[in-house]
Amino acid sequence: MHLDHAHTHNGPSAVSADAHRPDGSRRALRIGLGGPVGSGKTATVAALCRALREELSLAVVTNDIYTREDAEFLLREAVLPPERITAVETGACPHTAIRDDISANLEAVEDLEDEVGPLDLILVESGGDNLTATFSKGLVDAQIFVIDVAGGDDIPRKGGPGVTTADLLVVNKTDLAPYVGSDLARMAADAKAQRAELPVVFQSLRSEPGVRDVADWVRAQLTAWRA
């Protein structure tokens, strides 16, 4: 949609995922993080903020299901100043708010850009959901699907839209693999079979190098976005 290109800074905000803001400047890259409940989405967001906040202007949108816990965790951990973190209420249905009706999330990202911008990157975390939850292309430019080794090492084999199509698959909590009997080699092979050339990162946020590989992937996305 390019309905707003002719308008000035005071004009109405864009109606969709236009790559430009109403004033003609390029908007922030938006990356969505989805995945099952408790897989480590918020922990990954927090680690990304710590890794990138010195080099990038960042903000976060959380989509909690019935609390503000994710936003409150990020605030408590002080990963970003409070005005850079916004919680969207999703009415019991997180995948609706990130896929079928993205209007509240679009408002949140646009308000962040208006109020604390210019921004380089906005991370949008979905409330924990099932394996079919994916972000609309109208909301994010790229998406990360976060699963963990404790949720069962057959999740990559089961596939589903998140595992199969996300721009990056993160298999988190590898430190727990020995305790829950998860076979990381098998998870990697299954993920490869589902995703062909799409990238997969195995990480543990409890040990070095933590979120490093995901942060590098985000930097590469940003470089491509700016090109």
Partner: peptide, 11 residues
């Protein structure tokens, strides 16, 4: 009801 205008989050 599926018109994407945010109603799903309100009771």
């Amino acid at each position: 009801g599926r018109f994407p205008a945010g109603g799903h989050a309100h009771s």
